[in-house]
Design a binder for these strands. Sequence first.
DNA 1: TTGAAAGCGCTAACAG
DNA 2: CTGTTAGCGCTTTCAA
Lengths: 323, 323
Amino acid sequence: MLSAAKRLNYFPQRHARGLASKKSNAISIVIPYFTNYFFIEVLQGVQDKAAELSVDLMLYGVNNPAEAELYLRRSLHYGHVDGVLFFSMNFPESCVGRFKEMGLPVVLVDAYHPEFDSLRVENREGAHTATAHLAQLGHRTIGMINGHLGAQPAQERMAGYRDALEEHGLDFSMDLVKAAPRQRLDGFNKEWGDTAMRALIRNSTPANHMTAVFVASDVQAIGAMGAARRMGLRIPEDIAMVSFDDIELAQHFELTTMRQPMYHIGALALAKVMERIDHPEAPPSVSTFVPELVIRRTCGAKESRENEMSVLHDRIQLEESGT
Amino acid sequence: MLSAAKRLNYFPQRHARGLASKKSNAISIVIPYFTNYFFIEVLQGVQDKAAELSVDLMLYGVNNPAEAELYLRRSLHYGHVDGVLFFSMNFPESCVGRFKEMGLPVVLVDAYHPEFDSLRVENREGAHTATAHLAQLGHRTIGMINGHLGAQPAQERMAGYRDALEEHGLDFSMDLVKAAPRQRLDGFNKEWGDTAMRALIRNSTPANHMTAVFVASDVQAIGAMGAARRMGLRIPEDIAMVSFDDIELAQHFELTTMRQPMYHIGALALAKVMERIDHPEAPPSVSTFVPELVIRRTCGAKESRENEMSVLHDRIQLEESGT
DNA sequence: TTGAAAGCGCTAACAG
DNA sequence: CTGTTAGCGCTTTCAA
C-alpha cells in the first residue's frame, strides 16, 4: 500500500537517500573567474550535460588560490558530492593524497595531474600554430600579449609562441612579451590587453618594428584593438593579430583566433566524472583537444580557405594511458 | 573523548546532518540563459555573498520554461535546499501553493509575485528615462529594439518606452518596435539586435525618418551598432542610441545605457533568502532598484554631466509591504 | 518473490 | 550542564 502512495507525487528525500546509499547524485565544480566568457561557455556545456543526466551541480567560484583548496576540502569532507570538476588551476598537491584515499573522483579541465583524469587543451601547440601563421604571413617582429605567468595556460602559450619564433628563425625576447602582473583574471581581461598593447606600440622602434602580435586570449585582443585604434594604428594593416579562445564575441570583432570547443569541453568533462564514478579502478585517462585556427580579419590574410565556412570540427584525440 | 577526535580534522557528514536537522545549508538558483552577460554579473554577486556566508549553491540553468518548473519541483521535493533564488521568469502559478505549504523560501529576482519576496528592477521607469533622454535631445522618431514580448522585462521596457513617447507628444507605432520572436535568450542577443536594426533602417522613410533608437539591452545594442555600421550609418550622428543593462562591455562600446547594479542585485538576493529562512513569518518584502542613466557616446549628447564620473550610486528603495 | 529490520551519522530532546 | 538516546527517511540486507 505504501508503494501506491509512492507512485503519486512522491520524491525521495535527498539527505535520507544520501545517508543510506552514500551517494549524492551531485557534482561540485570548482572554477576560477566564472565571470570570464571562456568559462561561461564551458559551464554551459557542463550544465546541459548535467541536466541530461539529472545530476545536480554545486557551484564553487574561486576568486583566489586559497579558496580553491578550501572548496576541495569541503567537497571531500562533507561527503556530499560524488565527484568534482576542477578547472584551469594547479591542483594543490596537498589534496592529492586525500582524494586518492577517499576515492573521490576528480577530473581536471585545462590542467593536468598524473593521478587524475584530465581534459587538456593543447595550449602550446595552439600558440605555435597562431604564431606560425603570423610568421608565414611574412611578419618578422611578432609581439605577444600574455596573461600572468603564474597561470599554466599563460606559460604554455608562451612556450608555443617561442617555439614558432625559433622555427622561423626569429629572435625571442622578453621585450616583445607583455605578461600580466598578478591581477584580476590573471590578466586575461580587456584592460590588460589595452595596457600591454600600448606598451608594445611604444616600445616599437623603426629598427625593430613590430608588425604583428599574438594575443593569449580574445578578451585581451578586444582591449588591444581598442588601444591600437586610439593610437591611430589599423588592425590588421599596421599590426596583424591572432588571438586565442574563439569566444562568441570573437566573431563580432572579426578576430582571427584559435578555436577551443568550449561547450564540448564542458560537456565531456561532466561525462567523464560520471564515467569515473562508475569505474573507479580504471587508469587515469587524458583527453586532448587541439585548438583550430579560425581565420577572420585581424590577421590580414585576405585569402581564407577555412574562414567562417569551416565547420566546427573538433579534432579530439583521446589517448587512454595507463598509470 | 569523542569531542577530542572531533576537534582535529573533522567535518560533519552533510547528509546525516541534513537528515537530522532538516537543514541543508544550500540554496538553489534557477536562472535562465546564464550564458547572458547580464546574468553572469548577477551570479558573481550571488556567488560572492554565498562564499561569505558559507552557503552552497546549486545551479540550475534553465533553457526553456518547462525546465524551470521541473527544477522548482525538484528543489521542493528533494528537500535538499533551504531556499531558492528564481530569476527573471514568471513564477509558475502551479508552484505557488506548494512552496507556501512547505514553507520553502523563494526570492524572485527581476520578477514579481505578491506571495514572495522579490527584488525588482524598475524596467518601466528605466525605459522611460532612456527614451525621454532621446526625446529631450530633440529626436522625434524613435524606434525600439526589444526582446521577445513573452518576457516580462521586454513588456515592461516597452511600456516605459511608450510612456515616454506619449509624454513628449510622439506617436507610438508597432512599426517602430522590433520585438523578437521566441528564440534563444528571448531575443536578448546580438543577432536579434542586428536583424532588428536592419529592419528598422529599411523601414525608415524620408517622411518618417528614424533618428534614434532605444534598445532593450546592451548585447542587442552591440549587434545593432554592427548593422548600422555595415549599412553606412554612423552612431550617434545618423542614429542615436541608448540601451539597457550596463554590462561590462558597454564601456568598451561607449554605450549610453541604463545601469543596473547587477552584482549588487545578486548579493542582495542571496542575503534576502537567508534572512527569510531565519524569519519565515515576516510579510513578503519587495526591494526595488531603479536603473540609472549613464551617458557615454552612443546617444550623441556631447555635454555629459554624469558621464563616466558618476559614482555607482545605487538608489535603492526598500519598501516593506504587508501581506 | 515480498516484507520486515537494521543501520547510515548526525541533531535534538531528554535524563542524569 | 553534560552524557545518553531516539529518531530523521531512506537503502540494503536478511528472513520469511
